[in-house]
Nucleic acid binder design. Structure first.
Lengths: 192, 192
DNA sequence: TTTATTGCAGAACAAACGTTCTAATAAAGG
DNA sequence: CCTTTATTAGAACGTTTGTTCTGCAATAAA
């Protein structure tokens, strides 16, 4: 019974995500969304709820996808230094790809986290999970003797996370990919 | 001739700056401004121009003040490592002080730089100047033998700038001051 | 004290916002 | 076919936005 949707639910969600990523939450109006996505107002509301809910859904999707990608990329027996070098290079090429809209989560952390509890919660998940992924991979490396015993994998992980945040800002506002790659090399010197 | 203003022009500008810093540009309405600043709409317009101009003026003021402060703090013959450690600690305590609204420039880089040329220009000034301040101080240290000859002061400066950006985001959204201090120590390991 | 000029308060404005209502449309089951 | 249910397009809603207009108050010079 009933009519079928004229658009792909997941695909349109991704388009909305991309729009939010480029323009931010407040700077993206509902008219922008219906215009760019080619979906009517009512359909958006029926499918995703109001603007805030849509944003939150997109952000959650982005977070999940990011974490999955990171886990996959770091689940590799290569030497840590090489591994993280490649990891950061990929991140810089990706996040900083043409037009460089940066990272939706970092953008949200700046625009919304201080005033929206849900976003703040997701930001904390982002931090905790990525630090966890980094730390566990660094621990393995430490057991294999690739990293000195006196280093704290958790502290190293946090540091790498913080530099990641900086890269996201730089790529969005300055977009100097090459010097970010150089910075990544320097950051990874902390591994010893 | 004529009437005198009932408010201090510089002081109110600082209040506006602080409001923008906490809430961002789009999330701060003109009513918010008149309400919190205790100045009438018309007076704000007469004194500072429209909202965008007011923001830009505040941002420029913030930038100048920041750069001056940094120059002053780094104009010190102490050993670089100590000097930068103190510098970052102060920055973390300041930017991350209670409520931690972060850095107005970093917030602007994320919210406005991609779509506002004037903000983007100020962001580039921010980057160039701070990198310059860092680099020149690092060069002095290198000449004094505090830093190995094979290191590139400009690359080091850029790296430190990028980590600074990350700290601003982390302090705004996560507000974990202590682990930022630990990260700062790790970042400064690149000095050798 | 008058006059000229600037500052201020609040009403008023059009435009844009997020959201909802209304009516027409399309598909699937009977 | 008809009925039912869901989807859609577009008008409409009330708010809020940034900005301006209007009228009055205060100051300093003449």
């Amino acid at each position: 019974m009933s009519r079928t949707k004229e658009f792909d639910e997941a695909e349109v969600l991704d388009q909305a995500l991309e729009l939010f990523r480029v323009r931010g939450f407040k700077h993206t109006s509902f008219s922008d969304l219906t215009g760019e996505l080619g979906v009517s107002r009512q359909s958006l509301y029926d499918t995703y709820g109001d603007k805030q809910t849509l944003y939150q859904t997109a952000l959650k999707r982005y977070l999940d996808r990011s974490l999955d990608g990171m886990r996959r990329k770091l689940d590799d027996p290569a030497p840590v230094r090489e591994l993280f070098t490649g990891f950061f290079d990929a991140l810089i090429s990706g996040t900083c790809s043409n037009g460089s809209p940066g990272c939706l989560m970092v953008n949200s952390m700046v625009e919304l986290a201080p005033h929206d509890a849900a976003t703040r919660a997701l930001a904390h998940v982002h931090a905790r999970e990525i630090e966890g992924i980094f730390a566990s991979r660094l621990s393995v490396a430490q057991r294999k003797g690739e990293i000195a015993q006196d280093k704290d994998p958790v502290a190293l992980a946090r540091f790498l996370y913080h530099t990641m945040l900086g890269f996201a800002v730089a790529s969005r506002a300055l977009g100097d990919r090459e010097s970010l790659r150089v910075s990544a090399r320097l950051a990874l010197q902390v591994l010893g």
